Amino acid sequence: MEVRTIKVFTTVDNINLHTQVVDMSMTYGQQFGPTYLDGADVTKIKPHNSHEGKTFYVLPNDDTLRVEAFEYYHTTDPSFLGRYMSALNHTKKWKYPQVNGLTSIKWADNNCYLATALLTLQQIELKFNPPALQDAYYRARAGEAANFCALILAYCNKTVGELGDVRETMSYLFQHANLDSCKRVLNVVCKTCGQQQTTLKGVEAVMYMGTLSYEQFKKGVQIPCTCGKQATKYLVQQESPFVMMSAPPAQYELKHGTFTCASEYTGNYQCGHYKHITSKETLYCIDGALLTKSSEYKGPITDVFYKENSYTTTIK
């Protein structure tokens, strides 16, 4: 009895394709271990004539594949690729409408935090270190965002349907971005203890939790000093293409032309909904596939993004 075979390709990165001759009487799992086709788990399936010449994702289970996976995804987590594939199996079914010149995501599976993050990423200057993220990001900007969303979920250790947080998501993504040249110098002034300067680099240099107003941050924000008295913390120097200011959701007025974009969060910790506000020729609110415009805006804002380049204080 002759062994019926077909020729397929296996890959971990969709760049390096490895030619395989597979036995049609055995499952993919018996031949390769966990195997995925377009995100779908085909591990328990036997090869079919229609699979001839198709590319299958496999887990990096030998040295060659491990090197290829690390170079593309910059992670050695053995569960990463499987999590990416199972997320992709959902995100490829989502709709990605162009809204006001940006790629958004039609609401499904509690994905409003991903839509808000995706919209924000198209408006701030950011370059990702893992080629996987950078490639998928370019495709997302062009309207094909399924891979990018699935990668975000995998890097953030999230599953489809789980509630997510924009600030946490951005923080994970910033860790995989090139923020080497970003720098922030802060000064804390206390009447009792004097003053202390701190220099922050990388992710810490672009994120701040405690106030939404970048102007206020430049002037000074009140913080408790270690001595128990009130101290003032203010920005001395900022070198970065953008800054992200966050605070627990509270009524906040966004003035046209003073910011790049913002995240609105309605609801409580267990259950809520994100919308995205962007400042173009007027203010726009993007909620999944829905767009509304207004000249002014007041609502429960939790993150505001500002364009920056270089700032030095005039406070002496």
Rank of each mutant, 00 (worst) to 15 (best):
V3Q: 12
V3K: 14
V8G: 05
D13G: 05
N16E: 05
L17M: 10
H18Y: 11
V21Q: 12
V21G: 11
G29M: 12
P34T: 13
A40L: 13
P47H: 08
N49Y: 11
S50E: 14
F56Q: 01
R66P: 07
F70Y: 03
Y73L: 04
F80Q: 05
L81Y: 12
R83P: 04
H90D: 09
H90V: 13
Y96T: 02
V99Y: 11
V99M: 13
G101S: 08
W107N: 07
D109V: 01
N110I: 02
L114Q: 09
T116V: 14
T116Q: 04
A117Q: 00
L118H: 00
P130Y: 01
P131S: 04
Q134K: 09
A145T: 03
A145K: 03
A146N: 03
N147F: 02
A150K: 04
L153H: 03
L153G: 08
Y155M: 00
C156G: 07
C156S: 09
G161E: 00
T169N: 02
M170G: 04
D180E: 11
D180V: 06
S181M: 10
S181P: 05
N187W: 05
N187E: 13
C193T: 02
K201P: 00
K201V: 12
A205I: 04
M207S: 00
Y208T: 05
G210D: 00
S213C: 08
S213A: 07
S213D: 12
F217Y: 02
K218G: 02
G220Q: 05
C225K: 03
G228R: 05
K229A: 13
Y234N: 02
Q238M: 02
Q251E: 14
L254V: 01
T258Q: 13
A262T: 01
T266A: 07
N268M: 15
N268I: 15
C271T: 08
Y274N: 04
K275Y: 02
I277H: 05
T278A: 09
S279M: 03
K280V: 09
E281Y: 08
D287I: 01
L290D: 13
L291E: 08
K293Q: 15
G299S: 03
G299L: 00
G299C: 11
I301R: 05
I301D: 01
V304Y: 00
F305G: 02
Y306S: 01
Y311A: 11
I315N: 15
K316S: 15
